[in-house]
Computed example of a mutant assay.
Amino acid sequence: MINSIRPTVLIIDDETKIRRLLSRSLDGFGFDVLLSASAEEAMFLLEKSKPDIIILDYMMPEVDGLTFLSEMRKRYSIPTIFLSARDEVRIKTKALELGADDYVVKPFSMEELTARIKAVLRRSRVNSEKAPEQTVHNGDLVMFPDRRMCRYKDADIKFADT
Protein backbone atom coordinates (compact mmCIF):
# COMPACT_ATOMS: atom_id res chain seq x y z
CA MET A 1 0.00 0.00 0.00
CA ILE A 2 1.35 3.46 -0.93
CA ASN A 3 1.74 5.89 1.96
CA SER A 4 -0.87 8.59 1.29
CA ILE A 5 0.62 11.13 3.69
CA ARG A 6 1.74 14.23 1.81
CA PRO A 7 5.53 14.73 2.00
CA THR A 8 6.59 17.93 3.75
CA VAL A 9 8.96 20.36 2.02
CA LEU A 10 10.83 23.03 3.99
CA ILE A 11 11.53 26.00 1.71
CA ILE A 12 14.39 28.24 2.89
CA ASP A 13 14.61 31.37 0.73
CA ASP A 14 14.82 35.04 1.65
CA GLU A 15 12.74 36.10 -1.39
CA THR A 16 9.04 36.33 -0.49
CA LYS A 17 7.93 35.91 -4.12
CA ILE A 18 9.91 32.67 -4.52
CA ARG A 19 8.55 31.27 -1.22
CA ARG A 20 4.97 32.06 -2.30
CA LEU A 21 5.44 30.59 -5.78
CA LEU A 22 7.01 27.41 -4.44
CA SER A 23 4.44 27.07 -1.67
CA ARG A 24 1.42 27.38 -3.97
CA SER A 25 2.90 25.18 -6.67
CA LEU A 26 4.15 22.42 -4.38
CA ASP A 27 0.85 22.36 -2.50
CA GLY A 28 -0.87 21.82 -5.85
CA PHE A 29 1.56 18.98 -6.62
CA GLY A 30 0.63 17.21 -3.35
CA PHE A 31 3.20 18.46 -0.84
CA ASP A 32 2.81 20.10 2.55
CA VAL A 33 5.02 23.17 2.81
CA LEU A 34 6.91 24.90 5.61
CA LEU A 35 8.41 28.33 4.88
CA SER A 36 11.51 30.03 6.22
CA ALA A 37 13.10 33.35 5.24
CA SER A 38 16.38 32.76 7.11
CA ALA A 39 18.80 30.10 8.28
CA GLU A 40 18.01 30.87 11.92
CA GLU A 41 14.28 30.41 11.39
CA ALA A 42 14.95 27.23 9.40
CA MET A 43 16.95 25.68 12.26
CA PHE A 44 14.07 26.47 14.61
CA LEU A 45 11.62 24.78 12.21
CA LEU A 46 13.88 21.73 11.92
CA GLU A 47 13.85 21.34 15.69
CA LYS A 48 10.03 21.54 15.74
CA SER A 49 9.15 19.50 12.66
CA LYS A 50 10.49 16.72 10.50
CA PRO A 51 10.36 17.79 6.86
CA ASP A 52 10.95 15.11 4.27
CA ILE A 53 13.07 17.39 2.09
CA ILE A 54 14.56 20.90 2.09
CA ILE A 55 14.68 23.38 -0.79
CA LEU A 56 17.54 25.74 0.07
CA ASP A 57 18.54 29.06 -1.50
CA TYR A 58 22.25 29.82 -1.75
CA MET A 59 22.17 33.61 -1.42
CA MET A 60 20.58 34.55 1.90
CA PRO A 61 21.41 37.37 4.30
CA GLU A 62 23.53 36.67 7.39
CA VAL A 63 24.10 32.93 6.75
CA ASP A 64 24.42 31.68 3.17
CA GLY A 65 23.06 28.35 1.99
CA LEU A 66 26.44 26.59 2.00
CA THR A 67 27.10 27.54 5.63
CA PHE A 68 23.57 26.52 6.61
CA LEU A 69 23.94 23.17 4.84
CA SER A 70 27.27 22.49 6.54
CA GLU A 71 25.82 23.22 9.99
CA MET A 72 22.55 21.39 9.31
CA ARG A 73 24.41 18.24 8.18
CA LYS A 74 26.04 17.99 11.62
CA ARG A 75 22.60 17.21 13.09
CA TYR A 76 20.24 16.15 10.29
CA SER A 77 20.37 13.96 7.19
CA ILE A 78 17.32 15.46 5.51
CA PRO A 79 17.55 15.39 1.69
CA THR A 80 18.33 18.87 0.37
CA ILE A 81 18.03 20.51 -3.04
CA PHE A 82 19.81 23.81 -3.65
CA LEU A 83 17.82 26.38 -5.61
CA SER A 84 19.97 29.29 -6.71
CA ALA A 85 20.59 31.93 -9.33
CA ARG A 86 24.31 31.13 -8.97
CA ASP A 87 25.40 28.92 -11.85
CA GLU A 88 29.14 28.64 -11.17
CA VAL A 89 30.53 25.10 -11.19
CA ARG A 90 32.60 25.90 -8.08
CA ILE A 91 29.48 26.68 -6.03
CA LYS A 92 27.51 23.72 -7.39
CA THR A 93 30.41 21.41 -6.60
CA LYS A 94 30.81 22.80 -3.08
CA ALA A 95 27.08 22.35 -2.39
CA LEU A 96 27.18 18.74 -3.55
CA GLU A 97 30.36 18.05 -1.56
CA LEU A 98 28.70 19.45 1.59
CA GLY A 99 25.77 17.08 1.19
CA ALA A 100 23.25 18.64 -1.18
CA ASP A 101 21.35 15.98 -3.11
CA ASP A 102 20.72 18.16 -6.16
CA TYR A 103 21.23 21.72 -7.45
CA VAL A 104 18.66 23.62 -9.53
CA VAL A 105 19.45 26.97 -11.16
CA LYS A 106 16.93 29.85 -11.23
CA PRO A 107 14.92 30.46 -13.34
CA PHE A 108 13.49 26.98 -13.19
CA SER A 109 10.48 24.98 -14.28
CA MET A 110 8.12 23.87 -11.49
CA GLU A 111 7.55 20.58 -13.31
CA GLU A 112 11.29 19.88 -13.36
CA LEU A 113 11.78 20.94 -9.73
CA THR A 114 8.86 18.74 -8.66
CA ALA A 115 10.29 15.78 -10.59
CA ARG A 116 13.67 16.34 -8.92
CA ILE A 117 12.03 16.51 -5.48
CA LYS A 118 10.22 13.23 -6.11
CA ALA A 119 13.41 11.58 -7.41
CA VAL A 120 15.43 12.66 -4.35
CA LEU A 121 12.66 11.46 -2.04
CA ARG A 122 12.56 8.07 -3.82
CA ARG A 123 16.34 7.66 -3.47
CA SER A 124 16.34 8.77 0.16
CA ARG A 125 13.62 6.28 1.05
CA VAL A 126 15.43 3.43 -0.70
CA ASN A 127 18.75 4.34 0.95
CA SER A 128 17.32 5.19 4.34
CA GLU A 129 18.66 3.25 7.30
CA LYS A 130 15.85 4.44 9.56
CA ALA A 131 13.55 1.97 11.19
CA PRO A 132 10.13 1.75 9.56
CA GLU A 133 7.74 4.44 10.68
CA GLN A 134 5.57 3.38 13.59
CA THR A 135 1.84 3.40 12.83
CA VAL A 136 -1.20 2.63 14.93
CA HIS A 137 -4.40 1.53 13.20
CA ASN A 138 -7.92 1.76 14.62
CA GLY A 139 -10.59 1.36 11.95
CA ASP A 140 -10.48 4.38 9.62
CA LEU A 141 -7.97 6.12 11.90
CA VAL A 142 -4.22 5.71 11.29
CA MET A 143 -1.82 7.43 13.70
CA PHE A 144 1.83 8.34 12.94
CA PRO A 145 3.35 9.17 16.35
CA ASP A 146 6.80 10.12 15.02
CA ARG A 147 5.26 12.71 12.70
CA ARG A 148 2.68 13.88 15.25
CA MET A 149 0.01 13.21 12.61
CA CYS A 150 -2.95 11.02 12.00
CA ARG A 151 -5.17 10.25 9.07
CA TYR A 152 -8.92 9.76 9.30
CA LYS A 153 -10.38 8.36 6.08
CA ASP A 154 -8.97 10.77 3.46
CA ALA A 155 -8.05 13.67 5.73
CA ASP A 156 -4.58 14.32 7.18
CA ILE A 157 -4.56 15.83 10.66
CA LYS A 158 -1.40 17.42 12.11
CA PHE A 159 -0.97 18.08 15.80
CA ALA A 160 0.92 21.05 17.16
CA ASP A 161 3.88 20.54 19.49
CA THR A 162 3.08 21.11 23.13
Rank of each mutant, 00 (worst) to 15 (best):
M43C: 14
F44V: 14
F44Q: 15
F44H: 12
L45R: 15
L46Y: 02
L46E: 10
E47T: 12
E47C: 14
K48P: 07
K48I: 00
K50A: 15
K50Y: 09
K50S: 14
K50M: 13
K50H: 13
P51K: 06
P51A: 04
P51S: 10
P51F: 04
D52R: 00
I53T: 10
I53G: 05
I53M: 03
I54L: 08
I54H: 12
I54M: 12
I55A: 05
I55P: 05
L56Y: 03
Y58M: 11
Y58P: 01
Y58F: 11
Y58K: 06
Y58L: 14
M60A: 04
M60F: 03
M60W: 02
P61F: 04
E62S: 08
E62N: 10
E62C: 05
V63I: 15
V63L: 05
V63R: 04
V63Q: 14
D64F: 01
D64T: 02
G65Y: 13
G65N: 04
L66W: 01
L66I: 12
L66H: 06
F68I: 08
F68D: 09
F68E: 00
F68R: 13
L69F: 07
L69H: 09
L69K: 09
S70R: 15
E71N: 13
E71V: 08
E71P: 00
R73A: 07
R73C: 10
R73F: 05
K74I: 07
K74Y: 00
R75M: 05
R75D: 02
R75L: 12
Y76F: 14
Y76R: 13
Y76L: 15
S77I: 07
S77D: 15
S77M: 05
I78P: 10
I78S: 06
I78H: 00
P79H: 05
P79F: 01
T80D: 01
I81G: 00
L83S: 03
L83F: 01
A85R: 10
A85N: 14
A85T: 08
A85D: 01
R86I: 12
R86G: 07
R86Q: 10
D87E: 12
D87Y: 04
E88C: 09
E88T: 11
E88A: 15
V89M: 14
V89K: 14
R90Y: 13
R90L: 11
R90M: 13
R90C: 00
I91Q: 02
I91V: 14
I91F: 11
I91Y: 08
K92G: 09
K92D: 12
T93N: 10
T93S: 15
T93E: 06
K94N: 06
K94F: 01
A95N: 07
A95K: 03
L96Y: 02
L96P: 05
E97A: 05
E97R: 11
L98V: 00
L98I: 04
G99T: 06
G99F: 00
D101W: 06
D102N: 12
D102I: 11
D102G: 09
Y103G: 00
Y103P: 00
V105E: 04
K106S: 04
P107D: 05
S109T: 07
E111L: 11
E111G: 10
